[in-house]
Each structure stands twice: as C-alpha cells, then as structure tokens.
Amino acid sequence: MTAHPEYEEIEVPVRGGALTALRWPAADPDAPVVVALHGITANALSWAAVARQLAGRVTLIAPDLRGRAGSAHLPGPYGIGAHTDDIAALAEALGPDRVVLAGHSMGAFVAALAAVRHPDRFGPLLLVDGGIGFPAPTHLTPDELMTAVIGPAMDRLSMTFPDRAAYRAFWQAHPAFADAWSDEVDAYIQRDLTGEEPELRSTCRIEAIRTDGVGLFDEEVLSAVRKLPADAVLLWAARGLMDEEQGLYDEGRLTAAGLGGTRVEPVAVKDVNHYTVLTGDRGAREIADRLVAFARA
C-alpha cells in the first residue's frame, strides 16, 4: 500500500481574514520551500499526489485560494490580482528566502502574475497546463466567456448532493477520472464539500469563480509569461479537460502563442489529461522531479 504523507493546516493573515494552506514538511527542516496553487474550482488537496512523489525532498505548501475550501470565508473583491496579493503575503510569512512557485490551470496564471509583480519573493516557476492564454473573443459576454473557460464546472457549483457518496459518484463519472480514481482524488474532491446532508454543496463561491474566470482574459494576466523575472517550465497535458484527444495546448497552439524569446520552456506530458497531469502518478512524478530540480538549483 502506498503511504500518503501527512500534512498540517496553517493560516496566514491576508486582507479580510486568514488564508488556509496545507503544509507537507520536508524531512530536512532546512529544505527549500515550494508554494503550489490549484485550479479555478479546485483546492489545496489537488496537490496530494505531488506531495507523495516529493517524498519529503522539499516542503510543499498549497493554499486554498480565496473563495474556496478552507479559504471560502474570505471576502471579495476577487480576481487574479487578489490571489497574487494573498500568495505574496504567504511567501512573506514563510521568511526572507525566495520560494519556488508552481501553479496548475488557473493557478498557473496566478503564479505567473505573482512572479512578475513580486520578483523578490519568487524564484523559478513551474506552470502545469496553464499560464499561457489566448486573447478573448470580443463578441462574447462575461457569462459566455465563463462557459468557454470552465463550462460544466459552473453548473456543479449550484448543485446540491444528498451525501458524500453521491458527490463521489458524480466525480467518478467524469471522463477525466474514469481510469484514474484514487484515495487522493477522493480526499481532494471531498474537501470541496460544505453544508449538511441532504444538501451538501461545493465550497466554491460562485462570485469568486466568475470573477477569476473572466480575469483570465485580462491583458496583464495574459502578458505575464512574457515578463517573467526567472526561468519557467510549462508542463502541458496531451489530453483535455474531458480526457478528449485535444488538450488545452498542443504544438500548434504554443507556436501561435509566440513563446519564442520568453523564459518559458514547454514540455509535453503524454498519456495524461488536464486533471491527471496533477493527480495521477505519471504527471505528479514529472511535477515533483521538476520542483526538486528547481528548488536545488
């Protein structure tokens, strides 16, 4: 049986209250620190497989971003810029050393903007299937943009579930997890629930998700990867959000994004989708090894 590393919850003062984060400590108390940011409707436990693959080589700290899970109580205003302020406060609380920053999906956009806004706080950057955007179609309304960004995920936020087993079944039916379910995935999705049976619901605050999603098309956010103060690697998943053959990125899309002349090195991860690049063993191992290399550089 695979051992799952223990973590502790910590809190960091930020605007409006305290940001909750999970901390997986390294075996060596003096080991480097990595801060890892989750996707738009996810939470800190999405990084559990990476923590296991790290095997105590670095300290991993993953916050619940404002408006989700343990940080759902934090008030607006929301947005990508608000997350960068929270992450800068987290880094400040960790001490004077610069930390390695990683982000998955929306978290990659937050990480890139945080690195640009706070170059003294963050070193190398690992972007996981996110962080490289495309200009928004000008004919779409904000709500239409949201549908284009995360589609069915918005529907889930307004749903209720009679018990935790029903929520588990909802996610087990998702094509991305059809052959990739694990105890870690189960713990991650269960962390998203709040309320009492028979009306359990997602902790994600809809206004936070909507604001953050529209903010992904902001020019400052889109241009952040072109202004990075340190080297970055983009690990992109070969398959998409619904495990379809077309992923968010491919060679053509990355060429069109014009990464030449930037500090970003794109690296494909085969046989994973947008979710399992983070939660599955293959993707988590690739992420962990990259983070250790960055942290030790």
Results as ranks from 00 to 15, higher is better:
Val269Glu: 00
Arg285Ile: 13
Met154Pro: 03
Leu241His: 02
Glu265Val: 13
Pro124Asp: 10
Gly76His: 03
Gly103Arg: 02
Ala111Ser: 05
Pro119Asp: 11
His118Ile: 11
Pro63Phe: 03
Gly195Met: 07
Ala232Trp: 04
Ala208Thr: 07
Pro137Leu: 07
Arg164Ser: 11
His274Gln: 00
Arg52Asn: 12
Leu22His: 10
Pro32Lys: 09
Met1Ala: 09
Pro198Arg: 03
Glu244Ser: 05
Leu254Trp: 04
Val292Arg: 08
Ala62Phe: 02
Asp64Pro: 10
Ala114Phe: 02
Ser46Phe: 05
Leu19Phe: 09
Val50Glu: 04
Ile80Ser: 03
Ala111Tyr: 03
Ala257Gln: 06
Ala27Gly: 13
Pro13Val: 02
Asp218Trp: 14
Ala238Val: 12
Arg290Met: 05
Asp85Glu: 11
Ala102Lys: 01
Ala89Thr: 15
Ser158Ala: 11
Gly261Asp: 00
Gln53Ile: 13
Asp85Tyr: 02
Pro162Thr: 06
Val225Leu: 10
Ala18Pro: 12
Leu94His: 06
Leu234Gln: 01
Arg282Leu: 07
Gly215Lys: 10
Pro63Trp: 05
Ala89Glu: 15
Glu244Leu: 08
Val264His: 04
Gly107Phe: 05
Ala3Leu: 12
Ala230Ser: 10
Ala208Gly: 07
Gly280Ser: 04
His118Glu: 06
Arg290Pro: 10
Pro77Thr: 03
Gly79Trp: 07
His4Met: 14
Gly213Ser: 07
Arg210Ser: 03
Asp120Met: 11
Asp212Cys: 06
Phe122His: 01
Tyr249Pro: 09
Pro75Tyr: 09
His73Val: 11
Asp129Ala: 03
Leu94Phe: 05
Gly107Glu: 00
Ala72Tyr: 01
Ala55Ile: 14
Arg164Ala: 12
Thr141His: 06
Pro75Ser: 01
Arg253Asn: 01
Arg253Leu: 05
Glu196Leu: 15
Thr279Met: 08
Asp231Ile: 07
Pro135Ser: 09
Tyr7Phe: 12
Arg52Ala: 14
Phe217Gly: 05
Asn43Ser: 12
